[in-house]
Amino acid sequence: MNHLEQLFDVAVIGGGPAGLSAGVALARALRSVVVIDAGGQRNLRAEGVHGFLTREGMSPQQFLAAGRAELEGYGGTAVTGIVKSAAHECGNFVLALDDGSTCTARRLLITSGSEDELPDLPGLRERWGRDVLYCPYCHGWEIRNQKVGVLAASSHAVLQALTFRQWSHDVTLLLNGEVTLSPGDREQLDARSVKVVEGRVRGLVVQDDKLSAVTLDDGSAVPLEVLVVNPAIVSRANMLQVLGLEPDDLEEGPGTRLHTDDSGLTTCPGVWAAGNVTDVSAQVMTAAAAGLKAAAAINADLVLEDTLLAVEAAGAPAH
Rank of each mutant, 00 (worst) to 15 (best):
A29L: 15
L224V: 04
G219I: 04
A288F: 03
A288G: 12
V24H: 06
T102R: 14
I13L: 12
V303Q: 11
C135M: 10
R28M: 11
I13S: 05
A313H: 11
V194G: 02
V194M: 02
M239I: 02
L97G: 11
E72I: 07
H50E: 14
K293P: 00
P247W: 01
V148Q: 03
T163H: 09
G275T: 07
V33W: 04
E70D: 15
L292P: 00
L189E: 02
D262T: 12
L302E: 09
L175G: 02
C103M: 10
G149T: 04
D209L: 08
A300E: 13
P183I: 06
P247D: 04
R186F: 00
V197H: 08
A38F: 01
D261M: 06
V79E: 08
G264Y: 00
Y74S: 10
L308N: 12
L304E: 12
C138T: 11
S59C: 09
G14Y: 03
I298T: 03
A69W: 01
A66H: 13
N176A: 01
A316L: 11
N299K: 09
L71T: 09
V132A: 10
G270S: 09
L162N: 07
P223N: 05
H319L: 13
N176H: 12
A316V: 00
E126N: 15
Q146T: 15
A296F: 08
E225V: 02
A29I: 05
G291P: 06
